[in-house]
Computed example of a mutant assay.
Amino acid sequence: MPIRTVVWGENVHEQTNRTVAALYPGGMHRAIADALNADAGISATTATLQEPEHGLPAARLAETDVLLWWGHAAHDKVDDAVVARVVEAVWAGMGLIVLHSGHFSKVFKRLMGTPCNLSWREAGERERIWLASRAHPIARGLPDHFEIEMEEMYGEPFGIPEPMETVFLSWFQGGEVFRSGVTWRRGAGNIFYFRPGHETYPTYHNPLVQQVLRNAVHWAHNPAPRIADATAAPNRPVGEALEPLTERGGKLHQPGEEGFR
């Protein structure tokens, strides 16, 4: 069964900027989904900010194996209820791939628990992306390094928690470097952040960038059944303890009563 994938796009720049609209007439989300669908093992659809519930109602997330997220100009417009829904889906086992300026999205910052800040420069610089982990599944089929002729610079320090793995490192024409492909696991969900993807450049038409995204979907997919309630914190009755147990001391809660959250 193909990996059920949703590409979420903010879909703001495509409607307000002529350069972006010319590069991505169907939207960046559509271009990314088309690249993913070139892999028979992936079935990608799209969702946007402007749709009801931002295109991510609970029923759809329940049937999503991997979610890709691109946002930039409207992070604050994303409803907190949808953010909570996405975060809980990740904890329960949905894969998440955060792209470029999505580092400042509510979803990513909540999962990281850090500011996710960085330095940046919009000057059409050449970016050289190096494999930092040649054997990693996300790097499958890629050369030891490749270049993107025009990109926005992101520079260290990058305000993220220590990654589980660093897959790619970038060097920019102005001299800065950046951890441009990094992974984490949150609950049962695999997370990959991939830096390239500035809207005014044709980055998502680059075949090697597209290969990274296809590889990342396969890596992020967790085939295990989704955890039914990833936020459950049950009060276990004394009578259900695996070993004989006698209660002692005072109690704040009655048997079966929910605790404070």
Results as ranks from 00 to 15, higher is better:
Gly95Thr: 02
Ile148Met: 09
Ala35Pro: 02
Thr46Phe: 05
Leu252Ala: 15
Phe172Gln: 07
Leu111Ile: 04
Thr5Glu: 08
Ser43Cys: 09
Gly259Ile: 05
Leu131Ala: 03
Met153Ala: 12
Ala33Gln: 07
His221Asp: 03
Arg128Val: 11
Ala62Asp: 12
Leu56His: 01
His54Cys: 05
Glu151His: 12
Gly124Cys: 05
Gly27Arg: 08
His198Gly: 03
Trp91Cys: 05
Ala135Phe: 00
Ala21His: 13
Tyr204Asn: 05
Asp65Leu: 02
Ala188Glu: 13
Leu169Lys: 15
Gln210Gly: 00
Val78Asn: 07
Leu245His: 15
Pro157His: 10
Leu169Ile: 12
Gly187Arg: 08
Glu151Phe: 10
His145Pro: 12
His253Pro: 09
Arg110Ala: 09
Asp65Gly: 09
Leu213Met: 03
Arg110Ser: 08
Glu53Asp: 14
Gln173Lys: 15
Val12Ala: 11
Gly249Lys: 13
Glu243Asp: 10
Val209Met: 08
Glu257Met: 06
Val98Trp: 10
Gly175Arg: 14
Val90Asn: 03
Ser180Tyr: 01
Phe158Leu: 13
Gly41Ser: 07
Arg140Val: 06
Phe194Ser: 05
Ala38Trp: 02
His103Val: 11
His100Arg: 11
Gln211Cys: 06
His221Phe: 11
Thr48Arg: 12
Gln211Lys: 14
Glu165Trp: 04
